[in-house]
Each structure stands twice: as C-alpha cells, then as structure tokens.
C-alpha cells in the first residue's frame, strides 16, 4: 500500500512538474544559423506539442547552434489565445528578426532566444520561440525573474487554498460534526431514558403482580 501511495505521489509530481517545466519560459544563448519554412504533418497523438491548426501546414523553424557546439531547433508559431498564455501573435516579425540575426562561425553574433517547450528528436517536437534579443556573448546569462515570480505566485496560491480549506474545516465542518454528535448524544440519552422508563414500568407491573400474589 505504501508503494502505491508513493508511486501515485511521484506520478503527480512528475506530471505537474513536467507541465510547469514545459510551459514556463527559458532562455538559450545561441548563434542563429538559419530559418526556414517547412510543410509539416503533425501526428494527432503529438498535437498537444504544437499550436492549434491543420495537421498538415507550413511551419516556420529557426536553426541555432549553442556555444558548446550543440544544435537547437525551434518552431515559430502563434500561441494566440490558447495555452500556454504567451499571447504570441508576432510570429512573422519574430521570423524576420531571427532571419536578420543569422551569423556564421567566423563572426558569431550571440542571441538570447526565449522559448517554452521541449526539443525531442525522437518525437520530432520543438520548443516554440517567443522572443529574440542580442546579447554580449555566450556567457551573458540573466537571472530567471519571470519564472521566480510565477513559481512564487503558484506557491502563494497553493498556500491560500490550503489556508481556506483549514478555515472552512475549523469553522464550518467541525461545528456541524459537533452538532451532529450532540444531536446523536441527545437521541441516545432519550433512548436510554425511554429504556429506563420502560424497565421501571415493567418492574412496577411485576411488583404489582407480585403484590397481588401475596
């Protein structure tokens, strides 16, 4: 039973943590090496990793290389009014900016690309680029303020829900339970009294019969 409980808890943490990790913005310092538009067919079982739309459509991609030589590819799609709530409508402008940011190995220009989502070669899924801005060099990282604020806010929200529940239990449920307990006790007492009364009466009748026999 303990294994079941911990497996369940681990599963919930994994799903919630994965969801948060997928949705929150991250920054990569990269050199943009190219952009292109490609007709892409999105399998229906992976549609959640893409923006809403036709399963077969033209998708814009941004190809980049990081300072350590690893490659990273982004898709460039509107999120619109959907989830996650970035309200991204400037896909075309971002495409222009990214194309303008292309540099080669000899004269690298470093850019910080903010994005959300995961890259998986196996699943053919790509993080969605949100913004791009030039930075001084590959070491130019910044503290993730936005994520800190969002996570702190989520923490406060959880705390609030917990406090609300405690307050509700203390002041609404517990008194009700006590009332019910009191009512039950009263019923119990009355039943006892009735029983006693009946016994007394029975005893009285018995006594009366007894007195007749004498």
């Amino acid at each position: 039973m303990r294994y079941v409980k911990w497996t369940l808890i681990a599963l919930i943490v994994l799903v919630v943590g994965g969801f948060i990790h997928y949705s929150l913005p991250q920054r990569d310092i990269v050199r943009v090496v190219g952009t292109n538009t490609e007709r892409t067919t999105i399998p229906s079982n992976r549609a959640i990793f893409w923006s809403a739309g036709d399963p077969t459509r033209d998708v814009q991609y941004i190809q980049t290389v990081q300072a350590n030589g690893k490659t990273m590819e982004y898709r460039n799609e509107d999120t619109g009014w959907g989830w996650p709530p970035y309200f991204k409508f400037d896909t075309s402008s971002l495409y222009t900016e990214a194309t303008d940011a292309v540099s080669n190995k000899a004269n690298p220009e470093w850019y910080s690309i903010s994005h959300y989502g995961w890259r998986s070669e196996l699943l053919s899924i790509f993080p969605n680029a949100i913004g791009i801005k030039p930075v001084a060099g590959p070491e130019d990282t910044s503290f993730p303020w936005v994520n800190t604020i969002i996570l702190a806010f989520l923490g406060v929200l959880l705390l609030l829900i917990w406090r609300m529940w405690v307050q509700f239990r203390e002041r609404t449920i517990d008194p009700l339970v006590e009332d019910a307990g009191d009512a039950w006790d009263a019923v119990d007492d009355r039943a006892d009294a009735l029983k006693d009364g009946a016994r007394n009466k029975a005893q009285g009748i018995k006594n009366w019969f007894g007195s007749l026999r004498k």
């Binding site: 709530p85 970035y86 309200f87 991204k88 409508f89 400037d90 402008s93 949100i130 913004g131």
Partner: peptide
C-alpha cells in the same frame, strides 16, 4: 498581467 505579457511578447 495580461496586458504586460501581451506587450512583452508582441512589442518588445
């Protein structure tokens, strides 16, 4: 917050 996010995403 919606206005700030909207502005940051599309106009910054």
């Amino acid at each position: 917050i919606f206005c700030v996010v909207f502005y940051m995403t599309n106009y910054m």
